[in-house]
Amino acid sequence: MPKATETTLEIDLKALQNNFDELKSKLQPKTKFLAVVKAFSYGNDSVPIAQYLQKANADYFAVAYTNEGEELRNNDITKPILVLHPQKANLQTLLNRRLEPSIYSKKTLLEFISIAENSNQNAYPIHLKFNTGLNRLGFDKIDIDFIIETLAKTNAVKVVSCFSHLAASEDLSEQEFTKNQINLFKDITSTFITKLGYKPILHLCNTSGILNYPEAHFDMVRSGIGLYGFGNDVRYQPNFTPIATLKTVISQIHILQPGDSLGYNRGLITDKEIKTATLPIGHADGLTRIYGKGKGFVFVNGKKAPIVGNVCMDMVMVDVTHIDCNEGDEVIVFDREHTAENLAEAAGTISYELITDLSKRIKRVFLT
């Protein structure tokens, strides 16, 4: 891989393929695969990721909001796209771009049917989300009769899938809770299908659900974090490859004397002579202030360098007292060996937050 000359996120598409293949290997041949590419594909770049996965034969895509789906449509993504959290203001646009809404409440059902009817739609695909314990979005079982009665009054929409979301599939201490969710989903969908008169696609599992609950794969599974290289479990992590490497460079080196201060609000006051390196990455790039004052770290010439002082908007300073380095040397923020998960855990957060925080202003380079 080329040495960085600026802050760069390198994205390895071969690693993406490896992770896709690993997840697919856990499925029955007829089980569909939905690739979650919301939030800029978890900080990577949703357009190239979706284009690659479309060629790799992913069956479905999912985004959080309508504008994310629009961007994919504008860039030749033709596979079905599920919008997980559509808003009323965007429903007409969603319909115009042939995006498929998650319908999770009586209000969203009535609103979308109205728009679909006014646009003279016939059997427009919708996905019904049921709440089985996450208690975030979704219909409850008691809403089934309302849904059936409402659907019977229109030909404008057709239910193509029913789904729910596991709350703790990565936590094996919560197996009882997860199995209760699975059983509730089975109960809800059995009742719903009987009254509906046909069987939509059923899907429940996220990445950890795919790995830990094969009995709940149903007709389709959804994966986000697994595609990007995180198995959420030390047992599975060796089979996944983080696809992104975040690199930067040393802009300047300083020698601080005892009693000197460093950065905003004098975030560090030295008690001995130290050598620091200033890097062109900061909280505006997604390396937030939680990583300051020794919680976070980077790797300079293979050696760990703690972040010192407060993280600035566009810069961060690291302690390189013990490292032989020069201005212009490459710095690894995270890669396959020193993962985003390791860095996030050191600051008390999760890899999801770190990688989705990465700013679009960071240069992205795709490796094939």
Score class of each variant (00 low, 15 high):
K275R: 15
K275A: 12
D285A: 03
C325F: 09
A340R: 09
H322L: 07
F299W: 11
I350H: 15
E337T: 04
A284N: 13
M317N: 15
V308E: 10
V320Q: 08
R336Q: 15
H283A: 14
V320S: 03
I332T: 04
G309M: 01
K275E: 07
D319I: 03
F334I: 06
I269A: 15
S351E: 01
D314W: 04
E273F: 12
V298G: 02
V318P: 03
I350E: 14
D319G: 09
G309K: 07
A277C: 02
F334R: 11
F334M: 11
L279K: 11
G296I: 06
V320L: 03
G309W: 05
P306W: 00
K293P: 11
A277V: 12
L279V: 01
E337W: 00
K293L: 11
V331R: 00
T339Y: 06
G286Q: 05
G286S: 06
F299A: 09
M317R: 07
T349W: 04
K272G: 12
V311N: 14
G348P: 00
G282W: 06
L287R: 01
A340M: 05
M317L: 14
A340V: 10
C312P: 02
D271L: 13
T270C: 13
E330L: 04
V333R: 00
A305F: 03
R336M: 05
A344Y: 15
N310C: 11
G348D: 05
I269S: 12
D319N: 09
K272S: 14
D285C: 04
M315T: 10
V318Q: 08
D285R: 02
D329C: 05
A284R: 13
T349V: 13
I332R: 02
G282S: 07
N301Y: 02
G286V: 05
R289C: 11
D319S: 03
I307C: 03
I274F: 05
M315G: 00
K304A: 00
N301K: 08
H322V: 04
K295E: 07
S351R: 03
V333S: 02
P306R: 00
